[in-house]
Simulated assay, not measured.
Amino acid sequence: MKLSLIASTLLVITCFASFGQDKQSAKAKKPSTAVEKGLVKVSVMYPFAEGNTFNMEYYETKHMPMVAAFLGSNLVKYTIEKGLASGIPNQPLPYMAIGTFYVKSLSDYQAAIAPNRDAIRADFVNYTNAAPLILVSEVVK
């Protein structure tokens, strides 16, 4: 009886120890969301204004994947942001959405976009009636 109680206790302890290690391993394997210094960041910002529209589902499932495919191996990652509010209380939302591409090389980005510019622009009507503002910058931290 004592032997089976000891064996059961050891089994429970082993299970809990193993569970804790699995959770720690999962945390250790989680990919970093940090962006490397020196990458080029291309922000495509869609301004909010009365009458402007934006179809987030189309943008997320069709437009951004299409542009990402044009960028190929130069693309490190891309993000999509949905505007919620202004940073100043009682002020209008500045942007409905922002799409951001992080790429290794600006010249490779430009070379990939140039022959596809018309296709990218032609797709705008499928998700927005707003003219985007584009900022190209370098990640410094």
Rank of each mutant, 00 (worst) to 15 (best):
K2V: 13
S4I: 15
S4R: 15
L5H: 14
I6T: 15
A7E: 08
S8C: 10
S8W: 08
S8R: 12
T9D: 10
T9H: 10
V12I: 15
T14H: 14
T14R: 14
C15G: 15
F16K: 02
F16V: 14
F16P: 00
S18Y: 13
D22I: 13
K23E: 12
Q24K: 12
S25D: 13
S25L: 15
S25T: 11
A26D: 06
A26P: 05
K27T: 00
K30S: 09
P31Y: 02
S32T: 02
S32Q: 06
S32C: 05
T33I: 06
A34I: 09
A34M: 11
A34C: 09
V35F: 01
K37Y: 04
G38R: 04
L39R: 00
V42L: 12
S43N: 06
V44L: 07
V44W: 02
M45H: 05
P47Y: 02
P47E: 01
F48E: 06
E50P: 07
E50G: 02
E50A: 01
N52M: 03
F54C: 01
F54N: 07
F54S: 07
N55H: 01
E57Y: 05
E57L: 06
E60M: 06
K62G: 04
M64Y: 04
P65G: 02
M66T: 07
M66P: 04
V67C: 06
A68R: 03
A69P: 00
A69V: 07
G72K: 08
S73V: 10
N74L: 12
V76H: 03
V76P: 03
K82H: 06
G83A: 04
S86E: 08
S86G: 04
G87Y: 05
P89H: 08
P92N: 03
M96S: 05
G99W: 00
F101I: 13
Y102R: 07
S105N: 12
S107G: 09
D108C: 09
A111S: 12
A111I: 06
A111C: 09
P115S: 01
N116E: 09
N116D: 09
A119D: 05
I120T: 06
R121Y: 04
V125P: 00
V125M: 00
Y127W: 01
A130P: 02
A130E: 04
A130T: 00
A130Q: 04
P132C: 02
P132Q: 07
P132R: 01
P132D: 01
P132M: 06
I134L: 10
V136E: 10
V136R: 08
S137V: 09
V140A: 11
V140H: 10
K141R: 13
K141N: 14
K141I: 12
